[in-house]
């Protein structure tokens, strides 16, 4: 920590800020890695279980097995809306209570519920990633500010001492450059993590869209009035 002790107050504050950015960025990276890994893994398992099962109520009873899958959340939302429509169909149910009307907005209700669940899951998955983007874009500039300030201070000291030898100039500049180095150390993993998670989240969104379409198709085929 010798390099830290030798810097001025402003450079110290810059370094503390950058270390804070780095710590929080890595915390988010670890958190998101775990979250996205679990979401993908459990979604695969849920889809496998979904296509093997014949009945929605059987699937609904087993949703506790997939707590981190966005698809299970979507299914739960869609199935709950479907049950509501079937229970409160009233006048729309003419012959068979298990049949829902596509004219009265039944399918649209389920579609809206699925869209709402999709939006909610995307928001959950993208939570905190904006901090990574902010760190990636601002940390190098904050570090550069620390460096510029440090070099300004170093040159001021050189001017006061009246000596411009390398032994006098180099340590001040080296201390100042540490701010840029720490800024880059904070920014590089943040940018890499942000891009990685954006890519993974895009895949999960595509999975949710596909599942939503499939769910609506199944509902239309099985419960829709002709």
């Amino acid at each position: 920590m010798v390099f830290f002790a030798g810097t001025g107050l402003v450079v110290k504050l810059v370094l503390i800020l950058l270390i804070y950015f780095s710590v929080v960025s890595w915390a988010i990276i670890f958190y998101k890695l775990l979250q996205v890994y679990r979401a993908n893994k459990e979604s695969e398992r849920f889809l496998e279980f979904f296509w093997k099962s014949k009945r929605f109520d059987t699937i609904s009873s087993q949703l506790d097995r997939f707590p981190n899958s966005p698809l299970s959340i979507m299914f739960n939302e869609g199935y709950t809306e479907l049950k509501k429509l079937m229970e409160t169909g009233g006048e729309q149910q003419i012959d068979d209570p298990s049949v829902i009307s596509t004219e009265g907005g039944g399918i649209d209700n389920i579609s809206r519920a699925l869209r709402r669940a999709t939006t909610s899951e995307i928001t959950r998955l993208e939570k905190y990633t904006t901090f990574l983007a902010t760190t990636g874009s601002t940390a190098p500039f904050i570090g550069l500010f620390g460096t510029v300030w440090g070099i300004m201070t170093a040159f001021k000291g050189i001017g006061e001492s009246g000596s411009a030898s390398l032994a006098v100039v180099a340590p001040g500049i080296a201390e100042a450059l540490i701010a840029t180095a720490i800024g880059l150390v904070a920014a590089i993993p943040a940018v890499m993590g942000y891009n990685h998670f954006q890519n993974k989240i895009r895949v999960v969104i595509a999975q949710m869209d596909n599942f939503s379409t499939e769910f609506l198709n199944i509902v239309q085929r099985s419960f829709g009035r002709k």
Binding site: L34, Q35, R38, D64, F66, P67, N68, S72, I73, N76
Partner: peptide, 10 residues
Amino acid sequence: RQQKIRQPTN
């Protein structure tokens, strides 16, 4: 309902 399904994670 969502909380009922989703168990608390780290």
